[in-house]
Computed example of a mutant assay.
Amino acid sequence: MTQHPENQAAWLNASKSALEVGPAPYTHPGHDQLVIRNAAIGINPIDWLNQSLGEGILPHIRYPTIFGEDIAGTVVATGEGVTRLHVGDRVLAVAGLIPSNNTPEGAFQLYTVAREWLTCHLPPNISFEQGCALPLALVVAGLGLFGKQYLGLDLPTVPARPKDETRLRAVIIAGGASAVGGTAVQLASQAGYEVVSTSSPKNFDLVKPLGAAQVVDYHSPTITDDLRQAVKGRELVGAFSLGDGTADYLADVLNSHEGPVNKFIARAEGKHDVPEEGDVVVKFILISPQVIGPDTPLRPIFEDNLPKALDGQFVPRPTPEVVGKGLDQIQNAMDVLRKGVSAKKIVVQL
């Protein structure tokens, strides 16, 4: 009989329950899959939101389940058809539990089954803690920016695509100091777009090096006018929304822009009151089973762009903040994130 590692997980046994650490099956990889021994796990708002709201936010989830989306670690097994990655490789990967509803694909365990096309080599200069800040952020930012059903922008390149001075194309990306926002800023900038972002003033110096040409204070009472001025004279290719009320002022900017404009907002999260029958389309970035399937528009980012870009061009942001080690620390990590953090990625080491 073939021996396999003993797995443990932080289980969410029922809706709105606390996490409980216990044994979990070790699942061998299927076709185009690999198994990763997790070294670091990133925590996202959806983790504590799902625990708090249960069926109110993700009604399709079956319990008991193993949640979590962001992992970084070492490949310990590969399935048939996997050629790009090998046992022993350091990687980051998307844990696909939310769209797949398949517990072996959850992040909150020692061994996670990942899909090859949503896994990326980690170069030696990037730690596991830095790497696990990226997976879900790459999915949301990549889909919103480049998915044909969203903004449909050109893909990023390595080296970064030079900006066309004869056709200045700008995109507004809210929340540049967050994991999703900072990832979106880098991807759009490296695709050749002029990025205007928002953050609190204390984080301006964090967002600008990511590729933002201008950063506007999102607390400013004149934020709509500030953004209008920032994109004046540009072709405005759309906007990327994060946070309650953000889509409302972004819609005002799009509606009043003088010049070529795509009146489309890719919404990562946050409430808004933009009318459905208006000129501006606001579309929620939905992570469906198709998004993590083999035909995903994210595939070229994970397979081609990111492995090269992480060697100095793309910087994992925000900075990881390790709040503990071990599966029993994940509940505490979710509680820390729920209380609120700024420009930090909450991480648990394993």
Rank of each mutant, 00 (worst) to 15 (best):
L337E: 07
S127D: 01
V87D: 08
V158G: 02
P156N: 11
T83K: 14
I66Q: 06
Q186W: 05
L145N: 04
V274T: 06
V216K: 02
G106L: 03
H60V: 07
A137I: 02
S288R: 11
T319R: 14
L327N: 04
V76G: 05
V75P: 05
L49K: 15
F146R: 03
V281P: 01
A247L: 09
R167C: 14
V291W: 00
I61R: 12
G131H: 00
T198Q: 06
V231L: 03
Y111L: 10
R161Y: 03
V281F: 02
E194F: 10
H31I: 14
S256V: 13
V282E: 00
L254E: 10
A133V: 13
I173N: 04
R161W: 04
W11Y: 05
S17I: 09
I292G: 00
V231D: 03
T103D: 13
L134C: 00
G176Y: 02
L250N: 06
P124N: 13
W11N: 04
A39P: 01
G259C: 12
T296I: 03
G238C: 06
V180I: 14
L85E: 10
D70N: 14
S178F: 01
G176H: 02
Q190K: 13
L19T: 03
V291C: 08
L187T: 08
V253Q: 11
H121Y: 11
P221N: 12
L34P: 06
D335R: 15
Q186G: 11
T74H: 07
V75K: 04
V216G: 09
S189G: 10
G324T: 11
A212V: 06
T103H: 12
W117Q: 12
S241T: 09
L227H: 06
Y111N: 10
P23T: 13
L155Q: 12
D328R: 08
E20K: 15
K202Q: 15
L49G: 09
V274R: 00
E258K: 15
L286C: 05
T103R: 13
L168F: 01
A191P: 09
L206Y: 13
L85C: 11
N262S: 15
P297G: 03
L155C: 05
D164V: 08
S342M: 10
L242Q: 11
E55K: 15
K345V: 07
G259Y: 10
V237Y: 03
V280R: 01
G81A: 08
E269P: 00
G30I: 09
A95K: 02
G144T: 06
L138V: 11
I301W: 03
L187V: 12
Q290R: 14
S342P: 09
S127M: 01
A177S: 15
I172Q: 04
D244N: 15
Y150K: 08
